[in-house]
């Protein structure tokens, strides 16, 4: 397959299942260089799994996952670790190393992958921390940070090696409005100013739609809607509309499947001889 220079991540006919449960049933996704691409879907639709597949932490049943032309599932362990150096990933929990200070957390990838002198590491770490507004917190331990601060430190750490691609796993989940605003601003700003490509998986519709250039909506293992946020808002129908607008009832029913309500009340319990 010829590599498309505009596309940094190219996913074709991806199949993945856990046991008997099918997570992805043939999805195609393109992530354009320099853009913020969002993958949205309800909880349990496999959004985080998708990021782990792109990062090579999981192997698909079949399909192609190309990052900068490298087909991730076919790479050897050594090659995979090399490719990961230019992918940054921000985990939902932040995943900071709890035995290291904020400074050392951000310095970690630099110390591991470069031979830079200590003075340069110091400057680089301060620059990354300055970018996320936490230069003053460099001596703190992760346990002393709030959830939002931890995520920003994790962001600084993910930026340490100036990755080509940065992936965010639910960056807005459980954040207060101010932190959410800070994160939204940071993600967009860093993507544009550092010339990176960003993938966000999230189910926070409003925040995600404000920063995304292109959106994929996945459910039941398939891409069921895609487009720019504007077109999605205007043209969505059925399931996608329910999801984007957050309607309580629609193609996804409010009620978990159950037998007839009246019969249930009359005591005809399922599986019991009443």
């Amino acid at each position: 397959m010829k590599q498309n220079l505009d596309t940094i991540v190219e996913i074709r006919d991806l199949h993945f299942s856990r046991g008997t449960r099918v997570i992805f049933d043939g999805i195609d996704i393109d992530v354009k260089r320099g853009k913020v691409t969002a993958v949205m879907g309800p909880s349990g639709s496999g959004k985080t799994t998708l990021l782990r597949l792109i990062g090579g932490q999981l192997l698909p049943d079949s399909g192609i996952i190309k990052v900068e032309g490298e087909n991730i599932p076919t790479l050897s362990r050594v090659q995979l670790y090399k490719v990961r150096r230019w992918i940054g990933m921000l985990f939902q929990s932040g995943a900071l190393f709890t035995d290291l200070t904020v400074f050392e957390n951000v310095a970690f990838p630099l110390r591991e992958h470069t031979q830079l002198p200590e003075s340069m590491i110091y400057d680089l770490v301060l620059m990354k921390l300055q970018a996320v507004g936490l230069r003053g917190a460099r001596e703190l331990m992760p346990s002393q940070l709030s959830g939002g601060m931890a995520r920003r430190v994790a962001l600084a750490r993910a930026l340490a090696l100036d990755p080509l691609l940065i992936m965010f796993d639910e960056p807005f989940a459980g954040q207060d409005p101010i932190t959410m605003g800070v994160l939204v601003k940071l993600i967009r700003l860093l993507n544009d100013s550092l010339g990176m490509t960003t993938i966000i998986v999230s189910h926070d519709v409003q925040e995600t739609l404000t920063i995304a250039d292109y959106v994929y909506v996945i459910a039941d293992g398939r891409v069921i809607g895609q487009g720019t946020p504007k077109t999605l808002m205007e043209s969505a129908t059925g399931w996608v509309k329910q999801f984007i607008q957050g309607l309580p009832d629609g193609p996804v029913p409010f009620h978990y499947p159950a037998q007839d309500y009246a019969r249930d009340l009359l005591g005809e319990r399922v599986g019991e001889n009443v």
Binding site: R84, R85, M89
Partner: peptide, 8 residues
């Protein structure tokens, strides 16, 4: 996991 993703 995050260590793995940092190529370590």
């Amino acid at each position: 996991s995050s260590m793995e993703m940092m190529g370590v």
